[in-house]
Amino acid sequence: MTDEARQLGCQTDDMLMIHTVFRREFRLAGPMVRHVDAGDTAQAARVATYLAEIVTALHHHHHHEDEIIWDTLVDRSPGCALHVGQMKAQHAEVSDLLDRVDGLIPVWVPTADAESRDRLASAVEAVSTALDAHLGQEEEVILPVAASSFTQAEWDRLGEAGMASVPRNRLLVQLGYLMEDATPEQRAMVMAHVPLAARLLYRAVGRRQYEKEIRTLRAPV
């Protein structure tokens, strides 16, 4: 057995946390859009900013998986090739749905009219439905194989790429979204990888920013 083979094996629980965030936010996003009163351009702008952020985040997440996971997984676990092909096809489907949402946002925001609002909400709900199916299959058939096919350092590249794609001024708020439904064990796991200065900033500033943001966005739902 090679040195590399002896080192294979990693914890993939961080992916479950990310999936929880995407499931929750896209599930809530459709109702958020639908509850914006016709003509309320200020609230439409706030919801649109949030929606554009989660759309971009999901695009980046899937792009990083495409770059980092699939080829290595097939190389080391060839029996997983069929499932990887399904993952790629589902990524393409979700990407098309996200592009539709992206195209509908600027149509809705200037007037916040009811017709554009409802088209956008339906598009977001379609993303949520497709995403639930995709993430469930990924958790069932991909993550168990990945856990024995990657070294921890290789797997950690995925999280590092995801972190690098978050704008610096949103890092503390995004940490709040990540921690929202996390178990105490998951929170401890995340905080163990957050520098001390960032942990202090989150407790002093970031958590309040996140709580204010979700109150503004979710209150009408």
Rank of each mutant, 00 (worst) to 15 (best):
L58F: 09
L73P: 03
G136M: 09
H62T: 15
G39F: 10
V94K: 01
A89I: 02
R34F: 03
H134N: 10
A92Q: 11
A57P: 01
G103C: 07
P110V: 05
E53L: 15
S122F: 03
R117K: 04
L58T: 01
L98P: 00
V47W: 15
T41P: 08
R119L: 11
A57S: 12
V55Y: 13
T129I: 13
W108K: 00
V84I: 09
E25C: 04
D118R: 00
T111D: 09
V74R: 12
L104Y: 02
T72K: 14
S116D: 11
V141C: 15
G39P: 05
R34I: 00
A81K: 06
I105H: 14
G103S: 09
V47N: 03
E115W: 08
E65G: 03
V141P: 07
A92E: 08
V36L: 05
L104A: 02
T111N: 08
H62A: 09
I142R: 07
H60S: 09
E25D: 13
L97I: 05
M32K: 06
D37M: 11
R23E: 11
L104K: 03
A112D: 00
Q137S: 12
P78N: 13
H60I: 02
Q137C: 08
R76E: 03
H62D: 09
F26T: 01
D118N: 13
R76V: 05
V47H: 11
L97T: 04
A121N: 02
E25K: 06
V145Y: 01
S149I: 02
E25W: 07
A89Y: 03
L104D: 01
D66T: 03
E53D: 15
W70P: 06
E139S: 07
I68G: 04
P31Q: 07
Q90T: 04
D132R: 10
H59P: 01
R46C: 08
A57T: 04
H91T: 08
H59M: 06
H62I: 14
T72H: 06
W70I: 04
D66V: 13
V84G: 14
R23P: 01
H62Y: 09
R117H: 01
H60M: 06
D99M: 11
V107E: 15
G30I: 05
T111F: 10
R27D: 13
D40V: 12
I54Y: 15
S149R: 08
I68V: 14
F22L: 04
T72P: 02
K88N: 13
Q43M: 12
A147W: 00
S122K: 05
V84M: 13
M87H: 12
S128E: 13
F22G: 03
A146W: 04
Q43D: 04
